[in-house]
Simulated scan of single mutants.
Amino acid sequence: MAAAASPIKVDAQTDQLISHAAHFLKRSKKEVVDIAIREYIENHRSEIQTAVSQALRQLDGSTASSVALLTGMSRDELDELGGFSKTD
Rank of each mutant, 00 (worst) to 15 (best):
A3I: 04
A3Q: 12
A4N: 12
A4T: 12
A4P: 00
A4R: 13
A5T: 10
S6V: 12
S6Y: 12
P7H: 07
K9S: 13
V10S: 01
D11Y: 04
D11G: 10
D15H: 12
I18L: 14
S19P: 03
S19D: 12
S19G: 15
H20K: 14
A21L: 10
A21M: 06
A22E: 00
F24C: 05
F24W: 14
K26V: 00
R27F: 03
R27I: 00
S28H: 03
S28A: 07
K29C: 01
K30P: 00
E31P: 05
E31H: 08
E31K: 10
V32N: 06
V32D: 07
V32W: 08
V32Y: 07
V33E: 02
D34Q: 12
D34A: 11
A36S: 11
A36M: 01
A36Y: 02
R38K: 13
R38E: 15
Y40S: 10
Y40Q: 09
E42Q: 14
E42R: 14
E42I: 09
E42W: 05
E42T: 13
H44V: 08
H44Q: 14
R45F: 14
S46N: 13
I48R: 13
V52F: 13
V52D: 08
Q54L: 11
A55V: 06
L56F: 08
L56D: 10
R57I: 00
L59D: 03
D60R: 01
D60H: 03
D60Q: 01
A64D: 04
S65K: 06
S66Q: 06
S66F: 06
V67H: 03
V67G: 02
A68S: 15
A68T: 04
L69W: 03
L69G: 04
L70F: 06
L70G: 07
T71A: 04
M73G: 00
M73T: 02
M73D: 04
S74A: 02
R75K: 11
D76T: 07
D76G: 01
L78D: 01
L78M: 04
D79G: 04
E80I: 05
E80H: 09
L81T: 02
G82F: 08
G83A: 09
G83E: 12
G83K: 06
S85C: 08
K86E: 13
T87Y: 06
T87A: 11
T87Q: 12
